Structure formats: structure tokens, C-alpha cells
Amino acid sequence: MRLPVLFNPASGTHPKDPDALLRPLPKELRDRVEPLPFGPPWDYAPAIAQARAAGGPLLVWGGDGTMHHAARALLDAGCPVAMGVIPGGSGNGLARGLRTPLEPEGALQRLLEGRELQVDLPRLDGVPFLNLCGTGFEAAVAHRFAGLPSRGFASYARATWQLWRTWPEADLRWDALRGPDPEPTSGFQRIREAWRGHDPDLPERAWSLCFANLPQYGSGLWIAPHADPTDGALQWASLHRPSWFDLLAEAPVLFREGGHTPLRQEGRLLRAILHLDRPLPWHLDGEPAPERDRAELTVEPRAFRLQVTGACPWA
């Protein structure tokens, strides 16, 4: 019994070649896996059963939307195995946040040589997500992007540009439990927390707002650099609408892991009920979600199993 590598031949911006994926692997690793093309009616049960019989994990090759739906299928099945993320989408925010190699061949080998990590499972009104959810400008872009005929960074940038100048801010009202900051467990973390300082107050207005379990949107944009998928909390992050000057001077900072910019604020919370001044679109891991003017955010500590590489920074 071999470990299944699920992939959707029609997804992503480049064709998926399973032979090219396996060719660089050592024979002992190549003999452990079996690529399986996947599509409608999207029945994950046989692949999950095969992964379980082979000792796991369930390896999934695709983008953030594919990972979102595979994770929900694993949750429905009771998480019998971990999920391994092989990047094959447009932004690959989940893979980037976990520090998984972006080349699918290298990612597969490192995952097979890797380890299991139990990560927090956040939910938006009870619906789980792995990387982040959000509302406002970023969700409007996700809805616009989902309706475009083509994928890739160019299409995403076009959707962003179309909405940048016209999307309005929203008034926010919070009922939130922020909780104490976690105690640093290493010298590096102590230095990092000292440099970071205290969390800002929860915003009363926002143009774009997300709740992050991991630090990246995708395509290299660090929206919540302090997000930790093992701390039992969510990192909220808001973006101010950038001016023309900001687009040149500040926006590039968002693409550096250690970059500090007044465009972004972030803080930590354990759970929250958020009231908006009007119904707004939402997204879950980049997938469009229904409009709502009230949202409940919760976190289940260490409730999902991921297969990660040795480069993943969380123990």
C-alpha cells in the first residue's frame, strides 16, 4: 500500500506532471507514494483510507483552496492521518508559512523525510480554516479573483488594483478575549517579543482585516509575522489603505519577513465576536465565504495534524 499524492490536473497555473514530481526522489521514497489525479465529485474518502492503511500522511498537491477542502475532509473523517502540503497553487500561503520548499519535487521529499506537527484549528462561525480568514478589502479581492477566467499572480494583482481605490473602511465592534502573552521558551523568542512590544488596541475601523493561524497570505506577503499555529491563539492583522506614496515606500516592506510598516497592525486574541457596520464578504484560506455582519472566531488548540519538513520553525 502506497501513500496517495492527491492532485487536481486542472488546478494551478502550470500543468502538474506526476512523473516529473517523482523522478528526483530516491527509489526507496519513490516506491512509497502513488500520485492520484483528483476531481469531481471530490470524494476524499478512498484516498484517506489508503493513506491510513499506508501509515499516513495524506499528501495533497495543490493551492490553498485545495488544502482547505482536503483539511475539512480529514476533519470530517476524524483526522486519522496528518496532511502534507505540496505547493501547486498561485500563492501557496500555507506552504510558505510552514517553510515548505516551493518546488513540488523538493517539498515531497522533505515531507517524506519530515515529521508530524499538531497545529491549532481556528474556526469562523464554526467553519474550520488552516491558514487565515478575513474580511474587507482582502475578501473582496478573493471574491473577484474567484470569478476571473485565469489564475496566477497577474490575475490576483489585477483584481487587487480594480478594488484598491474604491473599497471603503468598515466600523468594528468587538467582544474579545485577548489573553496573556505566551512565555518565551528561548532566547530568540525573548528578543523577538521585546522588539515587538505590546499589542495595539483592537481596531475600531478597518479597510482589510484578517485572522491568521500562520504568517503569510501567499506570494511572499507577510500579513501576520507573529502568528504561531501552536500557541492556541489567533493573530489579528489589519491593513490601512495605502496611498500612492505607500505603494512605493511601504508596501514592499510587507514582502519582508522582518519588515515593520505603519500600514500593518497586528495583535493576539484567544476568541472574539466581531460586529461590522454592514454585511461584508469574507474568505476562508482564500476561498470566498458568505457575507456577514457578525462573526465568531474560535481556536481549538492542537486539533489538526500536519506533516511538515525539518525547516518548519514550530516544534
Rank of each mutant, 00 (worst) to 15 (best):
M1V: 15
T13A: 15
T13K: 07
H14E: 15
D17G: 07
D19L: 07
P24N: 10
L25I: 11
L29P: 01
R30A: 15
D31W: 07
D31L: 12
E34I: 09
P35L: 09
L36P: 01
I48K: 10
R52F: 02
W61C: 02
G63D: 03
T66P: 00
T66I: 03
M67R: 01
H68F: 01
A71Q: 09
A73V: 12
L75S: 11
D76G: 13
V81Q: 03
G84L: 06
G89I: 08
G89V: 07
E103L: 07
E105G: 15
A107S: 06
L108G: 08
Q118W: 13
L121Q: 13
G126I: 09
V127N: 04
P128C: 04
F129Q: 04
F137N: 05
E138Y: 06
A139H: 08
A139F: 00
A142W: 02
H143I: 02
L148E: 14
P149E: 00
S150Q: 15
R151P: 01
A159N: 04
T160E: 12
W161I: 00
E169T: 11
P184T: 04
G187P: 04
F188T: 12
F188E: 14
W195R: 15
D199E: 02
P203Y: 10
S208W: 02
Q216F: 07
I223N: 00
P225Q: 07
H226M: 13
H226V: 09
D231H: 08
G232W: 13
S238P: 00
A249N: 11
A249G: 02
H260L: 12
T261V: 08
L263S: 05
E266Y: 00
R268C: 05
A272M: 06
I273D: 14
L276K: 12
R278S: 11
P279E: 10
G286Y: 01
E287N: 06
P290T: 13
D293I: 04
T298S: 13
T309W: 04
C312L: 09
C312Y: 05
A315W: 01
